[in-house]
Design a protein around this nucleic acid. Structure first.
Ligand SMILES: [Mn+2]
Ligand SMILES: [Mn+2]
Ligand SMILES: [Mn+2]
Ligand SMILES: [Mn+2]
Lengths: 231, 231
DNA sequence: CCTACCTATTAGGTATACCTAAATCGTTGA
DNA sequence: TCAACGATTTAGGTATACCTAATAGGTAGG
């Protein structure tokens, strides 16, 4: 099967590069370095350079690449990246809602299947789920047209002032941490009181109306995004 | 992604070879020729020879191969082939029952996804469906342990005497023909009266209690399997 | 302003899974 | 028996997507 490409025409690898560039470039779509991609994709830097040159040289380039200056997505590349993200998040939602997966296991399965489902499959699970806008981790699901609102939340680990917050979303990539969060009642939509941070201290929070303070590991704090609670 | 292999360890290609050998070898597990595989998999004969030698030479061989004498599955190969068939048929059932796919579209999607789902996914859709034994085309779904009853039905195209029959199963690989069958009410479990065949004639049948005779194309007749009606 | 040092690219390889063209094997009919 | 023919295998390539080692580029501190 030399043509290990799906309906759309990109290989699984290419899809993963595009998604990584989308994520690492952030909403500002800043250029992404080879090293950053190498780390994210767990591939040697030399391999990254190779792939980027190939993607940039294609008839219909998926990225804009300048030697030694990093890459950004072309509009075709961005379109495809958002489509893959849509697949990923719809699949996660489906696995969680319909197939009763544990929250920490949806990501890995979605990471594989996102590349292989047809447009029909995408459409059918979206319909079955009532065209959801948010996945089980609190992330926006891009629309069929490739639109996605930008995230207003901030990383808990970066918040200094204390206060009451609502959990906006959690990172989905580390199953272990995600399971710990879940076990401590840290899930999307939950309320959380955060102690003001004093220099060296860790992160001490109260979940919901609990009086018991919970000390978050650095990992946990880094994987949680929050927004100020209403009023 | 040089390691384009799933949880289990075989590539998509290898899985497809194993499945083809299982099917072409039939219940008697006769040796399958390179040519037969080449046709089935739409791959050049030379490529078949290459792959068979690789599969036979592996530490844990998936096939028994003798130069110029064809291949058969080893017991490891058979185990994996049945697992892939189980995936395929569970996915088809799922697409049909849960996602409301048209019958003629389930096969193609299953053909891709069968290689990429996890054991958990397999288990969850099986549970959701109530551990079905038969897929939407009337084919047995191998059990988790790798058992599959053998098919008692015969090809309609090979039946000479007339009589009343029940449609046991239909071939799933040609979407066009399958759609035609469906459109004519030819579906699993339906009753069918077949005129005795006179030498050159085609296949004339009545579906259900219909008085209108239907002339089947060679294609259609070849894709239907039937069993004598009870009593 | 120039060297270290880190980043990135080039060069040269590997494995998988294909392909075409050129042998070679096996069987069968004269 | 044996030559011819079709089936099968061998030989030699391609494309994708990786890798390691060697080289070159950029920049920040002295
Ligand atoms: Mn995810
Ligand atoms: Mn992926
Ligand atoms: Mn099928
Ligand atoms: Mn398949």
């Amino acid at each position: 099967m030399s043509d290990r490409r799906r309906t759309n025409g990109n290989s699984e690898s290419v899809d993963n590069y595009l998604k990584a560039i989308l994520t690492l470039g952030g909403p500002a779509e800043t250029r992404v370095t080879s090293t950053a991609l190498a780390e994210r994709l767990e591939v040697a830097p030399a391999s990254i350079t190779n792939m980027l040159q190939k993607l940039a040289a294609a008839e219909k380039p998926l990225v804009e690449y300048e030697r030694h200056r990093g890459v950004r997505l072309s509009s075709a590349g961005k379109k495809r990246a958002l489509e893959v993200v849509r697949h990923h998040r719809l699949i996660e939602t489906f696995l969680y809602e319909v197939l009763d997966y544990p929250i920490e296991e949806v990501h890995e399965e979605a990471e594989r299947l996102e590349h292989f489902i047809s447009e029909r499959f995408e459409e059918r699970i979206a319909a079955k789920l009532g065209h959801p806008k948010i996945d089980p981790h609190g992330h926006f699901i891009p629309t069929m047209e490739g639109h996605m609102p930008l995230q207003a939340s901030v990383k808990l680990a970066e918040v200094v002032e204390g206060g009451t917050f609502v959990i906006d979303s959690v990172d989905d990539r580390d199953a272990r941490t995600l399971k710990q969060l879940e076990a401590n009642g840290i899930k999307v939509g939950a309320k959380l009181r955060l102690k003001p941070r004093t220099a060296t201290e860790g992160y001490s929070v109260n979940i919901g109306r609990s009086a018991k303070a919970l000390d978050l590991s650095r990992e946990m704090a880094g994987d949680i995004r929050i927004v100020p609670a209403q009023k």
